[in-house]
């Protein structure tokens, strides 16, 4: 039985007649890295705020670490979040910001705070007030604040905004280590879909407040892998022709359409073989895409709102 650390049940958030989130039912497995994909205004941040108890649902509910909303009890303290801009005290150093949050959990362990500073790469910040940090440094501090209190779940809303490529790679490595070494479950959203695809084990696609699809990374890789799409009038006969060409794995994905993942035989040869064997070919094309292409195809070539 799958162990979910977070499960939502028809979770909705309405502002008047506007449905920022509408009937979202999804699950995040313990120990996974879940990528929330959606364009601006799709409802990602609204969803994350509800999970982090920063916003109350209009209807529906969720379970977090075995507790049901609103009686989350101690489960609330198991989430660390970075939602929108990092919330920091501009007059305090990185160390003091982290110490402030650590006080919320009781005893302050200065070694742990120094460890968090090291993890997010702010060792050189020293006593500099956080208000004078660059955008990237503020983002790192925001991630650091989310790590205070040894959370079981990290909710990160666009955490790599403002980071340079080296910084993005560092944060990616950090998140992967936190996931694999400490078993922290991560819910992350980002516009940089290429980065998400390097990190996530599962994805949820959200558009206009609704969850359109959930998919694992394996399924996504499978769907995104290059393949030949062949639309014919007789799939059974076409499969026999393909077998004669040495292609033994052709799946019928819909009526009259075959998906051929073995791409060593070119489309010209396949077409010729079909014609010679009197199989009518309506369409043959190379397909395959990345996460971005997959997402854009799903929402129908939508532009960012």
């Amino acid at each position: 039985m799958t162990d979910y650390i977070l499960k939502t049940n028809s979770l909705s958030k309405h502002y008047g007649k506007f449905a920022a989130n509408d009937n979202i039912s999804m699950g995040i497995k313990k120990g996974s890295i879940y990528g929330l994909v959606g364009r601006n205004g799709a409802g990602k941040t609204t969803f994350m705020k509800m999970i982090c108890s920063l916003s109350s649902p209009t209807s529906g509910g969720f379970e977090l670490c075995g507790k049901s909303y609103p009686r989350l009890e101690n489960a609330r303290a198991k989430i660390g979040n970075l939602i929108e801009d990092p919330g920091i005290y501009a007059n305090m150093s990185a160390f003091d910001n982290l110490k402030a949050k650590a006080k919320l959990y009781g005893k302050v362990d200065e070694n742990k705070i120094k460890e968090i500073i090291r993890i997010v790469g702010l060792e050189k910040a020293g006593k500099k007030p956080a208000g004078k940090f660059s955008l990237g440094m503020k983002q790192r501090l925001g991630i650091g604040l989310a790590l205070v209190g040894d959370p079981e779940v990290l909710v990160l809303d666009e955490p790599i905004n403002g980071l340079d490529p080296a910084g993005v790679a560092e944060i990616r490595d950090t998140l992967q280590k936190l996931n694999t070494e400490r078993g922290i479950t991560i819910l992350i959203s980002s516009h940089i879909l290429g980065e998400l695809s390097k990190l996530c084990t599962d994805y949820g696609f959200i558009d206009r407040g609704e969850l359109i699809k959930e998919i694992s990374n394996e399924q996504l890789m499978n769907d995104c892998t290059e393949y030949t799409k062949l639309k014919v009038d007789d799939t059974a006969k076409a499969k026999k022709v393909l077998e004669s060409l040495g292609i033994d794995s052709a799946d019928e994905t819909e009526s009259g359409v075959l998906r051929i993942t073995q791409t060593q035989v070119g489309t010209d040869d396949i077409t010729e073989a079909m014609v010679l064997n009197k199989v009518r070919v309506y369409e043959i094309s190379k397909q395959g895409t990345d996460l971005e292409g997959y997402y854009l195809n799903m929402i129908g070539n939508g532009r960012e709102s």
Partner: peptide, 17 residues
């Protein structure tokens, strides 16, 4: 107002019972 203005409230208010 400082917690609301600087956003630190996001780090704390959601964790209390």
């Amino acid at each position: 107002g400082s917690d609301i203005k600087n956003g630190f409230i996001k780090n704390t208010a959601g964790t209390v019972k």
